[in-house]
Each structure stands twice: as structure tokens, then as C-alpha cells.
């Protein structure tokens, strides 16, 4: 194994070494082969995971890397979703609708960033929370946005691929997600990503070395919202139907939970957090279905709790798992991954 680097570019290239390249290629191949041997149901789960990955990447950029909290990201996702639907209905091709959704949402991100520049901690939390709330309330009142009833999302034309619609959509979402991961990775390695982290660690020193705090905080808000907008666009497509209640405060909290669970400030963390939490949420939704354990739970509920409320166990467990992660692995799943890697590298010592 070669440990010494001979060229500074080795710190910039996408794959550290041949081994990493190999495993990435295997993963990619697997992802692309998947639609041919699993049921559509599993594809939709992966779609949901992928969409959450995109939001998490953006949110982590803002929270984990720039150190600004946001409790309103569901609002950005909503803006992205609604922009896409409006544009698709107007006959705009999907690729433009997607780009426009990202850009429009990014603009909203900058607009929210402006009053938030001086705010910290709970003050920023309230400002972003207010934004998320405002977005869904306003959408609920707008008739051309379908009001509270919501809107159907037009199908995009993917016939040229020669595949089934669900399969083509899966490829669209996966490709965009992979691009988002690479874009985030390059951004974070660059002068701009470094500036974000500098602001997080010491805004005073950051300004003293020439970083324009206003500009870079707005960049961070804008880029973070851009990702949420793209994710919203994709989410609308695969749901096929959107309404304001989808984008509630709970969704914003869910995104925050993803990045904390995965690991703040880490791309791997964003990806792992999104995958694991999405899976967990789906599993816990029908907790009674789990063999043996589900029966026992139902019996217990009938005796001590209520049988009708048994689905609420999922909230209880999610909360409990969240606390356990923060208590025992504050760097999240990414921290766990790092420790496992180090353990195997050193084994058997």
C-alpha cells in the first residue's frame, strides 16, 4: 500500500486510490442495474432516500459547515416542488423546470439570509422557522397553487428512454443525486467551502483574513436552498401529488435529524443519515407488522396503553434513537464509520 503522496493534486482528486475507485464503480453499477431486478416499491424507497440525501447535503452545508441553524428547510423544498409543478404545467421541459426550481429556491434562500445575517442560535432558529411556516400558509391560500387541496404533478416525458416511467424516473433521481454529491464535495474542498468553515469556527478571524461575511453567509443560504429546491422538484415528481401539509415543521425537523444522525459537516454523514433515517421511518411506520415483536407490542399496548395509538410507538422510538446517537456517538453515523475503519486498519492490535 502506498501512503506517500507525490503530487498536491492527489488531495483534490475524486478518488483517493484505485481501491476507492473500484468500490465506487461497483456501487454505481449496482445502482444502475437495480431497476431490472427489484420491484417498483423498492425503487420508490430509494428515490425517497435520494431526495433526502440532496436536502441533507444542502442543509449540512449550512448547518454543519457554515454553522447557521435552519428550522425552515421544508419551506425551501416546498418552493422547489411548487415551482417545478407550475413550470411543468406551463409546458416547460423538465430539465429547465428543475434548474429554475433550484435557482428560484436559491433566491429565496438569499432573501431569508438577509434578515438572518446578524442572528445566532435560537434567534436564527425562530427566523427560519417563521419562514417555513409562512411558506406553507401562503401556499395554502393561493388558488393557483391548489390551495390546501394540493395539485397533481404532470408526468414528464421520459418515453425516449424506452424504459418504464418508474424506472426512468429512478435514473433521473439517482443521476442528479450523484451529481449533487460530487458538486458538494468539490465545493467544500474549494476556497468557498473553506470560507464557510472559517465562518463557522471564528467569524472574527474569517473577516480579518478577508472573507466578506455577508457575501459568504448569503452564498451558504443560497446554495443550501438551491439543493433543497432541486430536491423539492424531484420529490414532487415521484410523489405525483403535492399539498402544503407535506412540508410541515416536522419535515424541517426531520431534515435536521438526518444530518445530526449522519454527522454534521460530513458528506458521507449526509448520505448515511438520509438513508438510515428514511429506512427507519418506513420500518417504524408499521411497527406492528414486524414478526413476533409486533405481536408482543400489540399485546402490551392493549394491556397498558391503547391499541389504537400503537402507531405512535414510531415517534417514541425515533426520539429515543436520536437521543442515543447524540449521547453515545456525537459525530453521528459518520463518526461510527470512521471508528470502525480505524479499528479494522489496526486490527489485530
Amino acid at each position: 500500500m502506498r501512503n506517500l503522496k507525490t503530487d498536491y493534486f492527489e488531495d483534490l482528486q475524486l478518488f483517493k486510490d484505485g481501491l476507492q475507485l473500484f468500490w465506487s464503480a461497483v456501487l454505481l453499477l449496482l445502482l444502475f442495474a437495480l431497476p431490472f431486478f427489484v420491484k417498483t416499491y423498492y425503487l420508490t424507497i430509494i428515490n425517497l432516500m435520494a431526495v433526502n440525501v440532496v436536502v441533507a447535503l444542502g442543509l449540512n452545508l449550512l448547518v454543519g459547515n457554515t454553522g447557521q441553524i435552519s428550522l425552515g428547510h421544508a419551506g425551501f423544498v416546498a418552493i422547489g416542488a411548487y415551482t417545478t409543478v407550475l413550470l411543468l404545467k406551463a409546458g416547460v421541459p423538465f430539465i429547465f423546470a428543475l434548474t429554475a426550481s433550484g435557482l428560484v429556491t436559491g433566491l429565496f434562500g438569499v432573501l431569508l439570509g438577509i434578515p438572518s445575517l446578524k442572528l445566532e442560535g435560537p434567534y436564527l432558529a425562530i427566523a427560519t422557522l417563521a419562514f417555513g411556516l409562512a411558506v406553507t400558509t401562503v401556499i395554502g391560500r393561493m388558488d393557483f397553487l391548489g390551495g390546501r387541496m394540493g395539485m397533481n404533478v404532470p408526468k414528464i416525458s421520459l418515453g425516449w428512454t424506452g424504459l418504464k416511467y418508474d424506472q426512468s424516473l429512478y435514473y433521473v433521481i439517482i443521476i442528479i443525486t450523484i451529481l449533487a454529491v460530487i458538486a458538494t464535495r468539490n465545493l467544500l474542498k474549494s476556497r468557498i467551502g473553506r470560507a464557510f468553515q472559517a465562518i463557522r469556527d471564528s467569524d472574527i478571524a474569517a473577516s480579518a483574513i478577508g472573507i466578506n461575511l455577508t457575501k459568504y453567509k448569503l452564498y451558504s443560504f443560497g446554495i443550501s436552498a438551491f439543493f433543497a429546491g432541486i430536491a423539492g422538484s424531484l420529490w414532487a415528481l415521484y410523489l405525483g401529488f403535492i399539498n402544503p401539509t407535506l412540508f410541515s415543521f416536522i419535515l424541517s425537523i426531520n431534515f435536521l435529524v438526518i444530518i445530526v444522525l449522519g454527522g454534521l459537516g460530513s458528506i458521507t454523514g449526509s448520505v448515511m443519515g438520509a438513508i438510515v433515517l428514511t429506512y427507519l421511518n418506513l420500518q417504524l411506520e408499521d411497527v406492528v407488522e414486524i414478526p413476533i415483536l409486533g405481536d408482543a407490542l400489540l399485546r402490551f399496548s392493549e394491556l397498558f396503553m391503547t391499541a389504537t395509538g400503537v402507531s405512535n410507538v414510531s415517534w417514541f422510538l425515533t426520539g429515543f434513537i436520536l437521543i442515543l446517537v447524540v449521547l453515545f456517538e456525537p459525530l453521528g453515523l459518520y463518526g461510527l464509520w470512521l471508528r470502525t475503519k480505524i479499528y479494522w486498519k489496526r486490527w489485530p492490535f
Partner: peptide, 29 residues
Amino acid sequence: AKMPTPLNLIVITIGFQLMLYGFAGWKWG
């Protein structure tokens, strides 16, 4: 909390919130 940063502590309170919310729904429907 092992790393009591404000964000980590906030997440603990969110976790506790979810636990209580789930418990109440479970107990009282």
C-alpha cells in the same frame, strides 16, 4: 451528552419531544 454543543443539546430536546409525543399518543390515543 458527550459533546454538549448547543446543536447537540437541541437535538436531545427534540428527541425527548418526540418520545413524549409518541408516548402520549400511545397511552391515550
